[in-house]
């Protein structure tokens, strides 16, 4: 076991939670991520492996789905992000690669991103100040990448009107956190 201590994307030993008015903004570090891309001409093998490993068919464009430990988020044509608990799946790329063999290209993405979960009765008001997506109409199960304050951001509707996950490039963590907190204050 190595002895290097991890830092969260915001640069602390443990993840940060902000409560502003009725909103909770939580830095999420307990999930591992890998990109899973179907290789050309491997659709059948890919679908078979996906169902066997994740227990579900990978979701359609603009959607995410979950099953047991896993959640799958559509990120582009033939491409998904697979999420699983970091504790048990730190080596997520190897685990997924073992499941797919040559039918998919797998890339470890865990530390490439920062994830904030935002939750509360005013979450739509917050999202309306940040993101051009029609978040008021987003259903549970919708997931799509868009732009927040110049930062590319995956917007995942975990529970319609109540809870969203935002996943952005990790180096933007401080700026995105600032944007969330500033917008939250203006509606709190």
């Amino acid at each position: 076991m190595h002895d290097l201590a991890p830092l969260t994307p915001l640069g602390a030993a443990s993840p940060r939670t902000d409560r502003i008015g009725a909103l909770v903004i939580r830095e999420v570090t307990e999930r591992a991520l890998a990109s899973v891309t179907c290789r050309r001409g491997q659709d059948a093998g890919f679908a078979h492996a996906a169902t066997r490993l994740f227990g579900i068919t990978p979701p359609a464009p603009g959607r995410w789905a979950e099953s047991g430990d896993w959640s799958l988020i559509w990120t582009g044509p033939d491409q998904w992000f697979a999420e699983a608990p970091f504790e048990s799946h730190e080596e997520i790329a190897r685990i997924v690669k073992d499941g797919f063999g040559p039918s998919a290209s797998i890339t470890e993405q865990t530390d490439g991103w920062v994830r904030f979960d935002i939750e509360g009765p005013t979450v739509i008001e917050l999202m309306e100040r940040l993101c051009p997506l029609p978040t008021r109409r987003m259903e549970t199960g919708a997931a799509t990448r868009s732009i927040i304050e110049h930062m590319g951001c995956l917007v995942i509707c975990r529970s319609a009107g109540v809870r969203f996950s935002l996943i952005a490039p990790r180096s933007f963590a401080g700026s995105l956190h600032h944007a969330l907190v500033a917008a939250a204050h203006s509606i709190a």
């Binding site: 990109s35 891309t37 290789r39 050309r40 001409g41 033939d78 491409q79 290209s105 890339t107 470890e108 993405q109 865990t110 530390d111 490439g112 991103w113 490039p169 990790r170 180096s171």
Partner: peptide, 15 residues
């Protein structure tokens, strides 16, 4: 479009 190649950025995944 049919070449079997997949690309993705990993700039931030690795220090």
């Amino acid at each position: 479009p049919d070449l079997d190649v997949q690309i993705i950025s990993t700039t931030e995944a690795w220090a």
